[in-house]
Nucleic acid binder design. Structure first.
Length: 423
RNA sequence: GUGGCCGUAGCUCAGUCCGGUUAGAGCACCUGGUUGUGGUCCAGGAUGUCGGGGGUUCGAAUCCCCUCGGUCACCCCA
């Protein structure tokens, strides 16, 4: 049981077929959508100088308690990325690609928090970012990209929550109003909310505790403090989404986990999932982040989707299910020579997916393996075939029809069968 | 980080409350069912230091403590 000498570390796991293939398929779908929209792939390192991530917000839980960090042998302070956005901004500042720079990514991110369903210390994300333009149409296109992706997967119960956090310029005014309000009502807030209030008053709005609901409901909202520019940009995004037919819900209290967000913020929520992991993706604008990382003052916008949670949502809806991809042919060889070895390799070289049994198993055992593999065809070589210079080709679905084929014609015959009945 | 629940064959689980002979079931796996052919059926077979360590006891999978892991909730988020 749990007797293996080594086990995966907490919050990590091995993904095996068919689940692993499903993850790969999902990433491929995302890649198609992203590249169709003009995004190029970036593969940044999985770990960075801890400073890269600290800049995304020291007051955020992601940095203050969930950073998976350590010191390397060179005495450097390192952290495994908790998300891609900071790395993308760092990469932009470092390599200075042409703007607007549109890039997409996939891969693991790491957060040192307590694992539970849909929440792992190593989790898979896909996402896209654009750096170098503050055109709100980009916000809209990014949202549309994610939305289209969900649609293609067959997810229909995803809800898009939309908000704006305004610009850094006007935020202090709002924060002051919010803080004053919260302080005045502190006695009605939960203990947790009072702690949060001191660190980051904005996040109190995000409290899901019933005790805080009343105070939160009457709190001043950012939308009432927007600059004309920020308000116009938000209008433009809403207008764009309506024009594209992407449904959204305005969520004036939506505050996301990172401190760097400005203007548009959004979150994708899967209605069917348990409260703990309903957020299957999110993003927004981060117009000061590149500069905070030592780059030029270029604006940015992007989103990330949680692959594991998206898959949970798919399970919930019974869409995008894992599929077995059996080989085309199973080679059954009972001869003492290298006939089996040569046959599989010949088939593989011809582009046909082929596998076989090993360890000199009996014909019966090999046929069982062939059946179990779900391959539609078995190519059989025994002493009789060897003497006759043939192989027996047998269908494995249905009743099983078998016919001899000249050894030299095997690949041609199998190709023909595979093509005529695509599995 | 805080709290609840859980940890027995590859998998799903019974047995744990009321300690007691060789720890069980189903599925999966392996072999065979007359000498070269799978999917159904029949017969047989292998597998567990009962998560790990310590303690109580004549005796512990069963009780106690610690520890590791999982899971769920909170927090927060993907």
């Amino acid at each position: 049981m749990a007797r293996a000498e080594f086990q995966t570390l907490p919050g990590t796991r091995d993904l095996l077929e068919p689940e692993s293939g499903r993850v790969r398929a999902l990433v491929e779908r995302f890649a198609i959508e992203a590249e169709r929209a003009g995004f190029g792939l970036i593969v940044p390192p999985m770990f960075e100088d801890v400073g890269v991530f600290v800049r995304i917000g020291e007051a955020s839980d992601i940095v203050s308690k969930e950073l998976y960090d350590f010191e390397d042998k060179g005495g450097r302070d390192i952290a495994l990325r908790p998300e891609f956005t900071a790395s993308v901004c760092r990469a932009f500042a470092e390599t200075r690609p042409l703007i607007p720079w549109k890039t997409w990514y996939s891969g693991p991110s790491f957060r040192y928090d307590k694992p539970q369903k849909g929440r792992y210390r190593q989790f898979e994300q896909v996402g896209a970012e654009v750096i170098g333009s503050d055109d709100p149409d980009l916000d809209t296109e990014l949202i549309a990209l994610a939305w289209r992706f969900f649609q293609r997967l067959g997810l229909t119960d995803v809800v898009l929550l939309l908000n704006t956090l305004g610009d850094f310029a006007e935020r202090p005014v709002y924060l002051e109003a919010l803080s004053a309000y919260l302080a005045a009502n502190a006695d009605r807030l939960s203990d947790q909310a009072r702690i949060t209030m001191a660190v980051n008053p904005l996040r109190v709005l995000d409290s899901k505790r019933p005790q805080d609901a009343e105070v939160v409901a009457d709190a001043p909202l950012m939308v009432d403090y927007l600059s004309d520019d920020a308000a116009a940009a938000f209008d433009r995004v809403r207008q764009g989404l309506r024009a594209l037919g992407v449904p959204f819900e305005e969520a004036p209290r939506l505050v996301r986990g990172l401190d760097y967000y400005t203007r548009t913020t959004f979150e994708f929520v899967a209605a069917g999932l348990d409260a703990a992991q309903t957020a299957i993706g999110g993003g927004g604008r981060y117009d000061g982040l590149v500069e905070a990382l030592g780059g030029p003052p270029e604006p940015g916008v992007g989103f990330a989707l949680g692959v594991d949670r998206t898959l949970l949502a798919c399970d919930e809806q019974g869409v995008f299910e894992p599929v077995d991809r059996p080989v085309d042919v199973w080679v059954v060889a009972t001869t003492a020579g290298t006939e089996g070895l040569q046959l599989v390799e010949e088939l593989r070289s011809a582009g046909i997916a082929a596998d076989r049994s090993y360890d000199g198993r009996s014909m019966k055992a090999q046929m069982k393996a062939a059946n179990r593999s779900q391959a539609p065809i078995a190519v059989i070589v025994g002493e009789d075939e060897l003497a006759a210079g043939t192989v027996s080709v047998r269908t494995l679905r249905g009743e099983g029809r078998q016919a001899p084929v000249e050894r030299s014609q095997v690949v041609a015959r199998v190709e023909e069968m595979v093509r005529s009945s695509p599995s």
